[in-house]
């Protein structure tokens, strides 16, 4: 069996993670990447985050706007729209439930957290 590492797990939950870090504050690509890293997702890839942002935007879960920057290039900010918030809530619940199930499964077999 293939070794399960963080990168593989991330693939499944990156959408949720991105939606989550945008919940309270809009952000641009690199900004979002930084928030994810600061939250502990060190191994998240730049391209993965950008690709995810594109996909969520294309799926209609995000809105985007360009902000001119005084220092440096213009930045494309992403924000959650109603559909995105809805998706965040549902995915969040799914994850919680999934994580709880996994925790219980491991607890039952005496695995340390």
């Amino acid at each position: 069996m293939q070794r399960v590492d963080t990168t593989q797990l991330l693939k499944g939950v990156l959408d949720l993670a991105v939606l989550a870090v945008l919940k309270d504050e809009d952000g641009y690509g690199y900004d979002i990447l930084r928030r994810l890293r600061e939250a502990g997702l060190e191994e998240v890839g730049d391209a993965s985050v950008y690709g995810t942002l594109r996909r969520l935007f294309a799926a209609g879960l995000l809105t985007a706007y360009v902000v001119p920057s005084e220092s440096g290039p213009h930045r494309k900010y992403y924000a959650l729209n109603a559909a995105g918030r809805d998706q965040l809530v549902r995915s969040g619940k799914t994850w919680r439930s999934f994580a709880t199930t996994m925790d219980a499964l491991l607890d039952d077999r005496g695995m340390a957290a």
């Binding site: 391209a47 985050v49 995810t52 594109r54 996909r55 294309a58």
Partner: peptide
């Protein structure tokens, strides 16, 4: 920092579902 452009492109492509 980011790996080769080709690897970056592959990751971008996968993540974007494109």
């Amino acid at each position: 920092r980011l790996g080769t452009p080709e690897a970056y492109a592959a990751e971008l492509r996968t993540a974007a579902g494109a």
